[in-house]
Nucleic acid binder design. Structure first.
Lengths: 226, 226
DNA sequence: GAGGATAATGACAGCCACTGACAGTTGACA
DNA sequence: TGTCAACTGTCAGTGGCTGTCATTATCCTC
């Protein structure tokens, strides 16, 4: 269903291209169905049928129902990691993380547009946050990402991840804050990219001050009422 | 299998006690089987059979296979929350969290001994950390706990969780650090309670300093090589 | 451009987690 | 002791996921 529209000539032979098309079509169909009628209410058979392949074929492309849900997310993460690696060594660790996030959000469109529209990605994100089974999967994936981040940060700072706990500690705090921002965004009403971008940034700004002890001298905090 | 040994007279009538016994027996059987032969390699039928009830009955006690895995964990968390609520208002937020953790670890025995030996709990913890499906579930549960913690902290500090991001940010960072410690412990060789207790404390000590920028002036860090 | 090697797919059977429905059993309590 | 309500077992069925094998489609070589 729907013309695949091969933008620029995709690499590889016919076999390769066909595979890519089925792969992307499965993602599109799955996310469309998930966001419309819910994750659990959608069966793998439905997805397969929408793309006109057998259920068995679906499982040859994706190890399980969860995997197809996070396929796009994975592309975004790859972009983020790439950007982080490219940050100048002079930047402080937290600053580098923050900058990489900024860049990742800024060109999310170009990173995924060949597969799905950004708007569907945003809707998917919201659906994930409101589906317990997917929240769990999302978190597990985050933890795996954290491990990579910690290694990257450690390398930048010429530290040994196993000998010095600081990279892991920083990354854990960073990720926690990112998740908190994502959750608040998903419960809000502004589903735009800029919205989550701004929210993320402001949350990151609190990471330092929030550790200190005397909160009774209320210094800042913008209203985040939902 | 095995005598249930009702220590002190458990409350309620016979029906109540019988239910409690089945409940605990299912947990024991499940954790024993999981830690011996692996989570995925153990079927619900096996667990039910070990306790001599039908599979259907298992699902009347636990919503799913995951739930039985975390039943004990839940008791420990309840203990932790209780302790946090009891901390004096004068303590700084992070200090209160840290103290509550200390206490929780200190009397973990008394909290769970009526159901399983601490040693089995420790083995279960390791199994969870090395089983992807359970890691995911564990994380989702952590997030739910975080929400409660944030509310508690906000109350202590007389803040509105929805208006001021700091409680959530602090708790996110705290939880991230706790998880990092738990993971490192599970990959190590010392399976004792004191071991994870110490590791947790030392990780928490890094939460402040790790945020700062200049890591090249290596100040501390004990060897955590595995 | 025919034909064999190889990769992708479909069809089918089967396992396991989980659920709904209904009937049988057992503890609670008048 | 009899009645009610709670608890349990049995059975049938759904959906995620896997192994196997025959079939189809692309690729590559001559």
């Amino acid at each position: 269903m729907a013309t695949p529209t091969p933008h620029s000539a995709p690499a590889g032979g016919l076999r390769e291209r066909k595979k890519q098309r089925t792969h992307d079509a499965l993602i599109r169909a799955a996310l469309e169905l998930f966001t419309e009628q819910g994750y659990e209410a959608t069966t793998v058979d439905e997805i397969a049928e929408a793309v006109d392949v057998s259920q068995r074929t679906f499982f040859r492309y994706f190890a399980n129902k969860e995997d197809v849900t996070f396929a796009v997310q994975e592309m975004v993460e790859a972009r983020f990691l790439e950007e982080l690696s490219a940050r100048p060594a002079a930047e402080a660790p937290l600053t580098a993380l923050r900058s990489a996030v900024t860049v990742a959000w800024d060109d999310i469109g170009s990173a995924i547009e060949s597969v799905i529209p950004v708007e569907l990605y945003m809707r998917t994100y919201q659906m994930i946050e409101s589906t317990p089974a997917l929240v769990a999967a999302h978190l597990r994936r985050s933890v795996e990402l954290e491990a990579q981040l910690a290694r990257l940060i450690a390398r930048r700072e010429r530290l040994d991840v196993d000998a010095d706990p600081r990279p892991r500690v920083l990354v854990a705090a960073f990720s926690g804050v990112m998740r908190a921002a994502g959750k608040v965004w998903s419960e809000g009403e502004d589903w735009s990219v800029s919205s989550i971008r701004e929210l993320t940034m402001s949350y990151l700004d609190h990471i330092g001050p929030a550790i200190e002890g005397d909160w009774r001298t209320r210094s800042q905090s913008q209203s985040q009422s939902r």
